[in-house]
Amino acid sequence: MSKIEKILKDHHYKRSRIIQILQHVQAEYKYLPKDILESVSQKLKMPLSTIYSIATFYAAFSLTPRGKHLCTVCMGTACHVRGAPDVLARIEEKLGVETGGTTDDKQFTLETVNCLGACALAPIVVIDGTYHGQTTVNKVGGLLDKYHEKKGT
């Protein structure tokens, strides 16, 4: 059974579960590939335009491939008042991409999130699921370098 068949079967081919289906597709491919969405559309007999509107409405979905490492900067209020905008600006500068973008070497995708609910650690940067709390403009440079080094190993 193909990956996509399995995902659809897990959700009983229910159109009402389209958001969960897309979440599973994204977990599998790291983004929502066009051909997969077309296949989901055919198999669920659901217009591609409807799927596209859902995929673009919800911020968690990405229609473009992401880099090897996902760097997410929390932009919650607590992080904001403790300097998250400066941290984000520094990461954008360091990686040479804007928020939402992926570096040319496909190593990093930079995203923001509204709030992770871990405000005691503000400002927070999450890289590949690991929380780095109390970050500062001069700490983030070294932090990203660590992940860059990892690519060699």
Binding site: K14, R15, S16, R17, I18, I19, Q20, L22, Q23, S53, I54, F57, Y58, A59, A60, F61, V113, N114
Partner: peptide, 25 residues
């Protein structure tokens, strides 16, 4: 359990219900 997908407006009850039904919130 139904997981959201990163839309603040889904905290509003009618939007949340739409989202559970698999629609745009």
């Amino acid at each position: 359990v139904v997981q959201g997908a990163g839309a603040f407006v889904c905290g509003e009850e009618t939007a949340l219900l739409a989202s559970i039904e698999g629609k745009v919130g």
